[in-house]
C-alpha cells in the first residue's frame, strides 16, 4: 500500500545515471515530483515526454523532479543501470536525475506499484498528489494535466484536486 496523502515521504539515497547519488531530504524545494518509471514499459514510454516537459516547465519555479527505476534488471535487461544510463544519453540528457533502486527497498517503502506512478510532495516532503500524470497515456495533448494541476496547487498552498488518481501502467517487476 502506498504512503498516504499528508504523510511524510520516507527518505532515500540512490545512485543516479550521472554517477553521483541523490538523497531526498538533502534539498528543500517548494515541491518535489517523484515518479516511478522504467525503460521497457509502454505506458511509461508513452508518458515520458510529458514528464520531461513538466520537469523543464516547473524547474524555474524551484520544483525538483526525480525519476526512479525499481524493476528487476535480471529479468529485464533494458532496466539495468547501464540501460538507464544509455537511455538518458541517447535522449541527449534528461532535465532531472534518473535514480536506480536496485534493491527495490525504496519502492517497497513508498508502496509504489506501477510505472508510471507519480508522487507530488510539498516543501515538508509530505505527499499531496498520488497517481497518474493525466487521464490518458494515449493522448499527448493531455500534457500531464493532473500533475501540473497538483504542482500549481502545492506551489500556491492549496490542496490538489484531484489529490489521488488511479496509476495506470505496468506493474513494477519485483524480484522473487
Amino acid at each position: 500500500m502506498s504512503i498516504a496523502l499528508g504523510e511524510r515521504a520516507p527518505d532515500f539515497e540512490l545512485p543516479t545515471t550521472g554517477g553521483d547519488r541523490h538523497r531526498l531530504a538533502s534539498e528543500n524545494p517548494p515541491a518535489t515530483v517523484v515518479y516511478w518509471t522504467c525503460n521497457h514499459c509502454p505506458y511509461a514510454i508513452a508518458w515520458h515526454d510529458r514528464m520531461l516537459d513538466v520537469a523543464r516547465d516547473y524547474a524555474n519555479r524551484g520544483v525538483r523532479t526525480l525519476a526512479i527505476n525499481s524493476n528487476d534488471p535480471d529479468k529485464y535487461a533494458a532496466d539495468s543501470f547501464e540501460g538507464m544510463a544509455e537511455r538518458v544519453e541517447s535522449d541527449g540528457g534528461w532535465p532531472h536525475p534518473y535514480l536506480h533502486d536496485a534493491t527495490q527497498e525504496v519502492a517497497s517503502m513508498w508502496g509504489a506499484e506501477r510505472t508510471p506512478q507519480v508522487y507530488v510532495l510539498d516543501s515538508d516532503l509530505r505527499l499531496r498528489y498520488l497517481g497518474a500524470p493525466d487521464a490518458d497515456y494515449d493522448d499527448p495533448s493531455q500534457g500531464a494535466a493532473w500533475l501540473r494541476g497538483a504542482l500549481d496547487a502545492v506551489l500556491d498552498g492549496r490542496e490538489p484536486e484531484p489529490a489521488e488518481t488511479e496509476a495506470v501502467g505496468c506493474t513494477i517487476k519485483w524480484r522473487r
Binding site: H40, C41, P42, Y43, K75, Y76, A77, D138, C170
Partner: peptide, 19 residues
C-alpha cells in the same frame, strides 16, 4: 526478442509507442 512476463510495446502507425 526475449520472452518473459513483460508489458508489450507496440508501435502505432503514426510512430507512437503504445501498450
Amino acid at each position: 526478442e526475449p520472452t518473459g512476463l513483460a508489458c508489450r510495446i507496440y508501435r502505432r502507425r503514426d510512430g507512437r509507442v503504445s501498450p
